Simulated assay, not measured.
Amino acid sequence: MAGAVLNTVNVRLNAPTIAFLLGHSSSVVVMVDQEYFPLAEEALKIWEEQSKGHYKPPLLIVIGDENCDPGALKSALGRGAVEYEKFLESGDPEYAWKPPEDEWQSISLGYTSGTTVSPKGVVLHHRGAYLMALSGPLVWGMTEGAVYLWTLPMFHCNGWCFPWSLAALCGTNICLRQVTAKAVYSAIAEYAGAAPPPSVLLAMSQKGFRVTHTYGLSETYGPSTVCAWKPEWDSLPPVTQARLNARQGVRYIGLEGLDIFNPQTMQPVPADGPLPNNEFHS
């Protein structure tokens, strides 16, 4: 609504890498959870040192959390940061926002993890995010008021566009500060469930979970293909079910086209490949 381009930063990166992202993206606002304020502060310092006089301090907004050390928030506010709730109070509830003039305008910028070189950026547009935000709930059978337990970080393809999906559905986001088995099970018992990674398909099914396998990448805004489960597979042995569920090749409703190509000739080939013969261990 503000016309800004979102750039969710991987909190597992070190300060020099984050400094590169902030500088490369020309960030003007930095929003950080108070747990990660020291990391953000170090990155901003490095950015300033590397800018050679062209550094313009961004607006620094810190999101407070009573579950964190209150000293970190106090320290942040003492260094010129603005607390998130206070920042929201400065907004205008009557602001007449407008959609972008062009649906192909950028909505977000995501960086891949650089291994031998600096990270590369993937720019996403409003049209793609809109289609994925509506496509996801259709594929996953989500209805109004859905409850979503987050184990997927937003720096992975903007959380597969589910932040927008949940807003469209008037849903509830359940967030964990630490993604641990105990916290996940506690949240499931108290609130709802979420899809676990496909690498634990068999083990999860043995524990009573119904797992849906999807595949995607940054350029497709997250998952864009899914394993469409067939009712006749329900009676098959668990290992066979896991092998079938390890496939994903049915396109999302929002994906325009999907095909299989010969990597040498780049010509389409029949979709008749063998089932994966993976080994599963509980």
Rank of each mutant, 00 (worst) to 15 (best):
E66V: 15
R12P: 04
A19Y: 09
S224R: 00
V211Q: 08
A242P: 03
E89Q: 11
P197Y: 08
R210Q: 14
A271D: 14
V211F: 03
P263W: 05
E256K: 14
W160T: 03
A183H: 12
A242I: 02
H126W: 06
R79S: 11
D272E: 14
H213R: 03
N278E: 07
T214S: 04
G53F: 01
P38G: 00
Y95F: 14
L149R: 01
R177A: 11
G78E: 06
P238N: 01
Y111M: 09
M266E: 09
A19N: 14
K74I: 12
H281E: 06
A181M: 09
L275N: 06
R127S: 07
N173R: 07
L217M: 13
A203G: 10
W97L: 13
W140D: 11
T265Q: 04
I107G: 02
G249Y: 13
F37M: 05
T112L: 05
T180F: 03
P38F: 01
L6V: 08
F87P: 02
V239W: 03
A133C: 02
I260R: 05
E83W: 02
Y55H: 12
K86M: 09
N262A: 07
V250D: 10
T225E: 00
A167I: 11
V9C: 10
W160N: 07
A194V: 13
H156Q: 05
L6W: 10
S113R: 09
Y55C: 10
W229M: 08
K74C: 13
P163V: 01
A242S: 10
P16W: 08
S205T: 14
G71R: 08
A183L: 01
Y36T: 10
P197D: 14
M266G: 08
H156I: 10
A194T: 13
A40R: 02
A189R: 14
M154I: 13
Y185R: 14
L202Q: 06
G208N: 05
W140M: 12
A19H: 08
L77Y: 06
L138W: 10
Y221W: 11
R251Y: 00
P100N: 07
P268E: 05
P274R: 04
A4T: 10
Y55L: 08
V269T: 11
R79I: 01
F155Y: 13
E42D: 14
T220M: 03
M142W: 15
Y111N: 12
G216Q: 03
G114C: 02
R127Y: 07
